[in-house]
Design a protein around this nucleic acid. Structure first.
Lengths: 331, 331
DNA sequence: GTCCTTTACGTAAGCGCTTACGTTGATTTC
DNA sequence: GAAATCAACGTAAGCGCTTACGTAAAGGAC
């Protein structure tokens, strides 16, 4: 049995109240008492029981994070930012890999609520109405990263997907490309799917280039789908000289496909990605991509959640294009 | 304020004991009482407070995981296995990114202990003596993944690094390579460093090939170091026709370096990796590598930790080589 | 009908803390 | 020197649960 506060109190010859005060750095004891108690604590190896503390303080110093996929580079980077920031502020983080599954998500929301966590960060995932309902009932602070809410006014942190995608496309156009394909996410994805498609289309339109449905393919942001989409593109729209992929993973998939088919990047085909995860840097050739400050978004999310910085409402983070070697200038 | 069990009891006209019994599926009430109470619970939206429960039950249904680096593919895969398995068993997981930092690690160990978690999984990291001391004091079940303990008898799950590395090297030899370089981890790393170097050396020796210190370089398992080591190797030992990298990340780094220098893989140089993370599959060319069942090791770790399966002591998991396109047969 | 067992509860203690409030003795104020 | 103030504690309630124990009523055995 681990020693409790009353064991310490008994040993020190004081009351539990005094021990508690000393532990919590409040006032109401002499330096000598403090010294004595601290010694006893050391000696007995006493560690306060955070559960008992949580029960009375109504704070557990832990937050929960919902992620649609634990194993993607995107999630990892986000999580690293979150964990780091949380640790600095003396919070622990519980991870919940929802696998984009509705039932699972609700389960997690319930568990987190029962465990009396102090806040939740939800990432990357479109909030179904059911989620918002349960969230509303929970009365726990929530902040969103890379996603937004539709009914509730939940603060979020993300970049402007439409803008970013517009810029990526314009970047390609600026490099002289006129036949530009897209490897997008799902049409039905209102977060990273649709807006990015719209940005791409608008950029084409604004530059008097024609939009062709043949040149748009739909993946799921993951590697395999990137390969498949690239293959499709090569077949349906062989005239394209550049493609904009809505995620680095898909861009890398495109790279792999091109490699297999003997299509040289960037000589025969230029590719630009999205996210700027480490796989962009590691790709061959290194991938030009639109940078999202993922790690920082994670850090900021917990600061917002725990109100350590004065932040008002939601935040659109800046993005920019990082030029590497997968896009070439033509003409 | 959220309703408590006594609110439910009052509303239902029974005692808290009865409500508790109903919630916990014990006996001692009529079907009618149960029905009634369940209705009230539904109606009031009552959720048991896991903190209060934890205080009396001395179980929190949460475990902690220590990882040296949250953002590597290896860690992610491991974590996914752990999280998944934990969720199935109704446990939550708290993540702790130690960044291989001693002070941080101890901090985490303390926090986890205070939070009364039910078990700890420590991954990939060499257990310093201080860690083992604190672990011993904590009286919390621990299982190790991809690492072992030196003083304490802590159960572990890993593969035989020496054997795996021996086989990887022999695989290369089997493909006709005689001048084989190595991109290893640190010499001082007793887990994934030394044993893999030893395995490599032994395989060479057993096949009457000479060992040259010029052909061994030392990285830190990460991408950048892989690039650097490859560069070094190209300079110091240009005669090599193959290299064994002690991690996929370093192998990919080697790939990038080779690409930059115009060295064709596998035509001019063969490369074999270690881990079989997703980056091996995504590499160009796809990387031949030593497969570790990472995800399964994660799953198994929590099963061991929570004693759901009859397991005796530690486990050496099987490994095998997965052949992709980065190694070519010569002669 | 009596005695015993069983079922269906209620009572209250206790898990390990925090904290409002009370008490005591010393110090200050005038 | 009496009254007021204050520092340094101790007492005990309470956070939201679980559970050992007690009790009353019902049921069964004879």
């Amino acid at each position: 049995m681990r020693p409790t506060i009353s064991d310490v109190a008994k040993q020190s010859g004081v009351s539990t109240a005094t021990v508690s005060r000393i532990i919590n750095g409040q006032s109401g004891y002499t330096a000598k008492t403090r010294q004595k108690v601290l010694e006893i604590i050391q000696e007995m190896g006493y560690k306060p029981n955070a559960i008992a503390r949580g029960l009375v303080n109504k704070r557990t110093n832990t937050i929960g994070v919902l992620l649609p996929s634990l194993s993607s580079r995107l999630s990892s980077a986000l999580l690293k930012g979150i964990e780091n920031s949380a640790h600095q502020l003396d919070y622990s983080v519980i991870i919940c890999d929802t696998e984009s599954d509705g039932k699972r998500t609700i389960e997690y929301l319930d568990v987190l609520s029962e465990k009396q966590i102090d806040g939740i960060i939800i990432t990357s995932e479109w909030l179904k109405d059911v989620y918002e309902e349960t969230i509303a009932k929970m009365k726990i602070p929530v902040v969103l990263v890379l996603t937004t809410s539709s009914h509730l006014q939940i603060p979020y942190i993300k970049v402007d997907d439409y803008q970013a995608s517009y810029q990526a496309t314009e970047y390609l156009i600026g490099k002289g490309h006129k036949e530009i394909g897209m490897i997008s996410g799902s049409k039905t994805d209102k977060l990273a799917g649709l807006p990015r498609i719209e940005g791409y289309k608008q950029a084409l339109t604004d530059n008097s280039l024609t939009i062709s449905e043949n040149r748009i393919t739909y993946g799921d942001f993951a590697y395999r789908s990137g390969m498949r989409c690239m293959e499709e593109l090569l077949k349906k729209a062989p005239e394209i000289t550049a493609v904009f992929a809505a995620s680095d993973e898909m861009a890398v998939g495109a790279l792999s496909c091109a490699y297999k088919k003997g299509v040289k990047v960037p000589d025969d085909l230029s590719i630009i990605g999205y996210d700027d995860t480490q796989e962009a840097e590691m790709a061959i050739p290194p991938l030009t991509t639109v940078h999202q400050p993922i790690y920082d978004m994670g850090k900021m999310a917990v600061e917002m959640l725990l109100n350590t910085k004065e932040t008002v409402g939601s935040i659109l983070m800046p993005h920019h294009i990082v030029e590497r070697d997968s896009v070439r200038k033509i003409e």
